[in-house]
């Protein structure tokens, strides 16, 4: 059974149809890249999978381990192992990062019927992951993402990914706003999470990120559909020839 199966998904936002019958299959252990021009529906796809309100699914289905994902609330999806690394992580003043991480982790564990993490185990785990991602301890004491640089915000997303151990990670434009050093640290963090029981979906506009996170499959989206799929070579072709060739195909 595939980990994620998107079948003929059609999605509207207000009166506009954004996805026009998108299909995608992702298995455990795979890394997929979804590329496409601005407005092709990449972020919409990630939002619909994570359960963001405001999207109306008019046809199709999304199955996660064979279960109907669209029937679940965002928190149920998170507890089942869906993780979206946001393109623009929000700032939450007044909620310390550490408090947030612990509340979220324990909420997910509770939903799965697992015991809550003990404080020492939790702290040990956070420190370990934070050190690997070059996240200083004082950042963890600050409000969630408050005063963080673009790179720090993205690293904080990857920190959560490492902590929650989801089976499906969707990275929405992880490279936006990152310089080359920040990108490398973030990509190393993601690569460390590649595993045979986890799938990673990288959504990106540019091929550059895929030099660091090398995908098994590349899909090109245009006008709300996947118009071409291939291996990592496809990304390089795109870099050379651009997206224009696909605009008509869609």
């Amino acid at each position: 059974m595939p980990l994620l199966e998107v079948k003929n998904l059609q999605v509207r936002v207000e009166d506009r149809e954004i996805l026009h019958g998108l299909s995608l299959v992702v298995n455990k252990g795979e890394v997929h890249a979804i590329m496409g021009p601005n407005g092709s529906g990449k972020s919409t796809l990630s939002h619909v999978i994570a359960g963001k309100p405001g999207y109306e699914v008019t046809a199709g289905e999304v199955l996660f381990n064979g279960e109907d994902l669209l029937e679940m609330s965002p928190d149920e999806r998170a507890a089942k192992g869906v993780f979206l690394a946001f393109q623009y992580p929000v700032e939450i003043p007044g909620v310390a990062t550490m408090t947030f991480l612990r509340t979220a982790l324990n909420a997910q564990r509770k939903a799965r019927g697992e015991s809550e993490f003990s404080t020492p185990d939790f702290l040990k785990k956070v420190r370990e992951v934070a050190a690997r991602l070059n996240i200083p301890q004082d950042m963890l004491r600050r409000g969630v993402n408050v005063g963080f640089s673009g790179g720090e915000k993205k690293r904080n997303e990857i920190l959560q990914m490492a902590l929650f151990e989801p089976s499906l990670c969707i990275l929405d434009e992880m490279d936006s706003g990152l310089d080359i050093d920040a990108l490398r640290i973030a990509a190393d963090g993601v690569n460390a999470l590649r595993s045979s029981d986890r799938a990673i979906v990288v959504i990106t506009h540019y091929q550059r990120l895929l030099n660091y996170i090398v995908p098994d499959f590349v899909h090109v989206m245009s006008r709300g559909r996947v118009v071409k799929s291939g291996d990592k070579q496809l990304a390089l072709e795109l870099e050379a020839s651009g997206y224009a060739q696909f605009e008509d195909a869609a």
């Binding site: 963001k52 928190d75 998170a78 946001f86 909420a107």
Partner: peptide, 8 residues
């Protein structure tokens, strides 16, 4: 939504 996407 951010918090709910993290399991709350």
């Amino acid at each position: 939504f951010y918090l709910r996407a993290r399991g709350l």
